[in-house]
């Protein structure tokens, strides 16, 4: 059972397969779990969207909400953002040049990870959550094989330039300059990070993969060395010359093209 909805300004897909158990009750349970997963994303959007005047983050940015009235979720996201800023030598920073906060670079992966936790708590083990191309997979697909994930060609969106397998609950995140134009800035210089076109990171889960992909992207061509220095992470970086640079362990995830 798969469903796609547009939330947080992007298509979000949830697929739950369960070949081992069937029946009408199971079908209903899957549908209810998918519904709850989308409700979770809708709630995250209502809280953290900087595009919504009614969101909590907008109230904070407008100075309308004192810190003692922040939700526990907001406190968690700010704590995780602060930790990520330290872990990336300042390359990840939710504070914008005008002093307002935009935690979307961290919230997305965090929300996907929490969505996966929600689905697991409902007793499902074979599923994935894909929010705008950032993915948390678990278990196996409908054929009983590990989920296969294509890395999109930045210049031809119908094409994949790599196909990898997610056999151990990995999270897979891609940052690119083709998201809303050049959207990632080097907080040290304020300059747009444009040395690389696309960076895909495989991490132990989507929260880890997404936050380090976002931070590394701001480092420009040093991104792949940073990812390579992290234990448990692999990366695939594409530059404007259409050359890919990959970490030493990347090919272990790769499904070899038979063509």
């Amino acid at each position: 059972m798969k469903e796609t909805r547009i939330l947080m300004g992007m298509p979000i897909s949830v697929e739950i397969v369960d070949a081992r158990r069937g029946g009408t009750t199971e079908e209903t349970r899957r549908a209810a779990t998918i519904e709850a997963t989308f409700a979770h994303f809708a709630h995250i959007d209502e809280t953290f969207s900087t595009y919504k005047d009614t969101s909590e983050i907008s109230a904070i940015n407008a100075g309308r909400l004192p810190r003692k009235e922040w939700s526990p979720e907001m406190e968690v996201v700010f704590a995780l953002s602060e930790e990520t800023k330290r872990a990336t030598g300042g390359y990840f920073d939710i504070k914008r040049p005008d002093g307002t906060y935009d935690p979307s670079g961290l919230v997305k992966g965090w929300a996907i990870w929490n969505a996966a936790q929600l689905i697991m708590k409902k007793g499902f083990s074979d599923f994935y959550v894909d929010a705008g191309g950032d993915i948390q997979a678990h278990g196996v697909n409908g054929e009983g094989d590990p989920w296969s994930v294509g890395i999109r060609n930045p210049w031809d969106i119908r094409e994949n330039v790599q196909v990898i397998r997610a056999a151990h609950h990995e999270g897979i995140a891609t940052s690119g300059t083709y998201i809303r134009g050049t959207h990632i800035y080097d907080p040290h210089t304020g300059a747009a990070a444009d040395a690389i076109v696309s960076l895909t990171v495989i991490g132990p889960n989507i929260y880890e993969a997404d936050r380090f992909a976002t931070a590394a992207f701001a480092m420009g061509s040093d991104a792949i060395r940073f990812i390579g220095s992290l234990p448990g992470f692999e990366g695939y970086m594409i530059d404007a010359q259409r050359t890919a640079t990959k970490t030493a362990g990347w090919d272990a995830y790769r499904i070899t093209d038979a063509a």
């Binding site: 300004g9 992007m10 298509p11 897909s13 697929e15 994935y128 894909d130 705008g132 191309g133 950032d134 993915i135 997979a137 697909n141 989920w147 296969s148 994930v149 294509g150 890395i151 999109r152 060609n153 930045p154 031809d156 969106i157 094409e159 994949n160 330039v161 790599q162 196909v163 897979i172 995140a173 891609t174 940052s175 690119g176 083709y178 998201i179 809303r180 696309s198 895909t200 594409i238 259409r242 050359t243 890919a244 499904i255 093209d257 038979a258 063509a259």
Partner: peptide, 18 residues
């Protein structure tokens, strides 16, 4: 050099959809 892959995939990772 990047090259198109023909293998079928379940999911696609990329930034295009945003």
């Amino acid at each position: 050099a990047i090259a198109a892959q023909s293998a079928n995939v379940n999911i696609v990772s990329g930034a295009t959809q945003t």
